Amino acid sequence: MIKVSIAGGTGYTAGELLRILLNHPRVKIESVISSSSVGMAVTDVHRDLLGETGITFSDQTGHPDVIFLCLGHGLSRAFLNENNVPAACKVIDLGNDFRNDPVFAERDFVFGLCEFNREKIRTASSVANPGCFSTSIMLALLPLAVLNKLTEDVHVHAITGSTGAGKKPADTTHFSYRSGNISVYKPFTHQHLEEIELTLKAAGSKNLPPIQLVPLRGDFTRGIFASVYTRWDAPMPETEVINYYKDYYKASPFVFVSDKPISLKEVVNTNKCLLHIGFHNGYIHITSVLDNLLKGASGQAVQNMNLMFGLDEAMGLKLKGSAF
């Protein structure tokens, strides 16, 4: 059994990790760390786990084989500085501390996009989990980047659920603001742009054009719907492009290309990313949908753990979606 500790145990991503890992056949929860909730039952915070676990929050890491860092952005480095995490313990960071700056002391973090870095992740001791926006956008564009077919500006409009902003309430996550509402934030400057650009360049697009990302806040709790388009002048028939995408992702247990238009509800509560490809007036248009807390965060983190420990990549992640 893999002994797991979770730091930052009261947040949304930690709650999703617990829901997955309590049912993972090869995992034992060693500790759930929260300095503000020591001694409280985990089920006092994550109420849906009542009857599934008797774990209480701790301020000790224990002796895990792997620790998941579900901390606020910028706090993972501080946690590793302040806690004696042995070199033999693997680390998976769900924050943004190591995505673009991967070196920390003796650790060298591998970027944890499974569909791009699968073999490196298998031998990694430390992994930086990608962001939710970046996962949806990178999966939409990776096949084109590999062919070096991204030559003109890429335009992205992507809408996210309120859980993407974290558990701590804010004016723009409050129900009375979000309900029946939609708004733009961080246009063209979102923090996920850097990891997207670094990954697509590493995939093959050495002269990557600008990616014009306009993120939007949605009036729903979970999921990301990304609409991605760019000029398409490549001499490849449309059916050949679609078949190429399907072939590119044939080894992935969670990324699928749909022949029909897709919607967000088809991926919520799953670890899947669905893609749909269309061609319009000289543009290629790719829609990409995923659950921001699962494939965009905790589900992908477990996928990384499975790879790091030599398990079936999909173990513990065959989750039931909600069709209605």
Score class of each variant (00 low, 15 high):
1 M>Q: 05
3 K>M: 01
13 T>P: 02
18 L>W: 12
18 L>Y: 13
22 L>R: 09
23 N>T: 07
30 E>F: 03
34 S>H: 08
44 D>F: 06
45 V>C: 08
45 V>T: 14
47 R>Q: 04
51 G>E: 10
55 I>E: 11
58 S>N: 09
59 D>K: 14
64 P>T: 01
68 F>H: 02
75 L>R: 15
79 F>D: 12
85 V>F: 13
88 A>K: 14
89 C>G: 00
92 I>F: 00
93 D>Q: 03
94 L>K: 01
95 G>D: 01
101 D>I: 12
101 D>G: 14
109 F>T: 05
110 V>N: 06
111 F>D: 03
112 G>S: 06
114 C>K: 10
118 R>G: 04
120 K>Y: 14
120 K>S: 13
126 S>M: 05
128 A>K: 01
134 S>N: 05
135 T>M: 03
143 P>C: 07
147 L>I: 07
158 A>T: 00
159 I>Q: 06
160 T>R: 03
167 K>W: 11
168 K>R: 15
171 D>A: 14
175 F>G: 13
179 S>E: 07
180 G>W: 06
185 Y>A: 02
192 H>Y: 06
194 E>K: 15
198 L>K: 14
200 L>D: 00
200 L>Q: 00
201 K>W: 13
201 K>A: 04
203 A>V: 00
204 G>I: 00
205 S>T: 02
211 I>F: 11
215 P>Y: 08
217 R>G: 04
223 G>N: 07
224 I>Y: 02
226 A>C: 06
228 V>C: 07
235 P>R: 14
237 P>A: 14
240 E>H: 10
240 E>W: 08
246 K>W: 09
247 D>V: 12
252 S>R: 11
253 P>K: 11
253 P>E: 10
261 P>R: 11
266 E>G: 04
267 V>W: 09
267 V>I: 06
273 C>M: 10
274 L>F: 10
290 L>C: 03
291 D>T: 07
291 D>R: 06
293 L>G: 05
295 K>G: 04
296 G>H: 01
304 N>T: 01
309 F>H: 08
310 G>W: 11
313 E>L: 01
314 A>D: 04
321 G>F: 11
